[in-house]
């Protein structure tokens, strides 16, 4: 039976009237899997990793009988994960990276326009000491797919998890990411490029939890909103006592292209450790007049100039993609979208 559950909770919460403390989603009672490959079931007890969308979602999936599976990922290649969405589905993909290994993963979350369904796509990552995980996600569900994209990671000593997410036009999306920086000198990078329009919503909750000394996190969001789009970005840097020397930064740059959009930004910095450096910067508003003027004086009409700025917002995140094949894949999608427009 369908049930409404709370996800993307802001901890600690703030004024209720701002309507940013949490969001509610309706989930079906049963799910199929959208992964066509046969993957080995993971030991659920060993994969209790907190995610950005939160415990209520993980518990719901567990109660609905969704089993975590181990992804087959290898070093030296681009590991592609592309679910095929046809009906209500939920998948929990576990990615276990041993010490000193580097893996590149690309997930493409898309669906046919005809698909009417709800999908939960959850990735759980354990990054062993000194390992590197480069995870690129293209998130572009078709109009009928309500998508929850949720990630949790545990990052060991000197390990890195580099997440790049590209949200292009599509349906309503809820997204979460939580990185637990539990190893000394660990790193979590999170680069997000987003375009939202035509009344689409994007509800995000990203948490960087610094437990270990000298751990470092970087979140950057760049995007453009137009024609009734609604976006909430919650970004939390949490310095837990004991993470001396930790460093966390958040940056957001959002272009608002018309008067019909709602952009909410909630960048928290929480701190119980003395010796840390945390910072946040945001720039939200219309495109700079002088930049538009310059482009128009070179013969580019205003519409085209705005499309260029939208693309630049995505490319700011794309530029962080390490793997060349993944980069080309993402750029092809961006180019295709542009051609279609």
């Amino acid at each position: 039976m369908a049930e409404k559950i709370m996800i993307n909770s802001l901890v600690p919460p703030t004024w209720n009237r701002l309507k940013v403390n949490e969001t509610y989603v309706e989930l079906p009672g049963a799910f199929s899997s959208a992964i066509e490959e046969n993957l080995t079931e993971a030991d659920a007890g060993k994969w209790k990793i907190e995610t950005g969308c939160g415990k209520e979602l993980s518990d719901y999936l567990e109660n609905a009988g969704v089993k975590p599976v181990l992804a087959n990922v290898r070093s030296g290649i681009l590991n592609m994960i592309k679910p095929v969405y046809k009906e209500d589905s939920a998948d929990i993909i576990c990615i276990d990276i041993p010490e000193n290994e580097t893996v590149n993963i690309l997930t493409d979350l898309t669906s046919d326009e005809s698909t009417k369904a709800t999908a939960v796509f959850q990735i759980l990552i354990k990054a062993g000491n000194n390992s590197v995980v480069n995870l690129t996600q293209v998130i572009r569900p078709g109009k009928g797919l309500k998508l929850i994209n949720d990630i949790g990671s545990e990052i060991s000593g000197k390990a890195q998890v580099n997440l790049v997410q590209i949200f292009t036009d599509g349906s309503d999306i809820n997204a979460g990411y939580r990185a637990e920086l539990s190893g000394d000198d660990s790193f979590a990078g999170c680069r997000i490029g987003l375009i939202r329009s035509n009344g689409e919503t994007l509800d995000m909750n990203y948490v960087m939890k610094h437990f270990a000394p000298r751990s470092k996190s970087e979140i950057s969001v760049s995007g453009a909103l137009s024609t009734g789009a609604k976006k909430i970005f919650r970004g939390t840097i949490d310095f837990v006592k004991g993470c001396a020397g930790a460093d966390g930064t958040e940056n957001e740059s959002v272009l608002i292209l018309d008067d019909t959009v709602i952009n909410k930004t909630v960048p928290l910095i929480l701190c119980t450790e003395e010796n840390v450096a945390g910072s946040h910067g945001a720039s939200i508003g219309k495109p700079a007049e002088d930049m538009l003027y310059y482009m128009m004086s070179r013969g580019i009409d205003k519409e085209k100039a705005l499309r260029i700025l939208e693309r630049a917002a995505l490319e700011s995140a794309v530029s962080h993609i390490e793997d060349q094949t993944a980069l080309e894949y993402v750029m092809n999608i961006i180019n295709e979208n542009e051609d279609n427009e």
Partner: peptide, 29 residues
């Protein structure tokens, strides 16, 4: 010191295209 707690909880809710909003926060010792 490291027995205290300091949190920053800002919210920006922007509903017009013609706005110029900047926010910066920092924490240190």
């Amino acid at each position: 010191d490291n027995i205290s707690r300091s949190d920053t909880i800002p919210v920006m809710d922007i509903r017009t295209d013609d706005a110029d909003i900047g926010h910066e926060a920092s924490i240190g010792s």
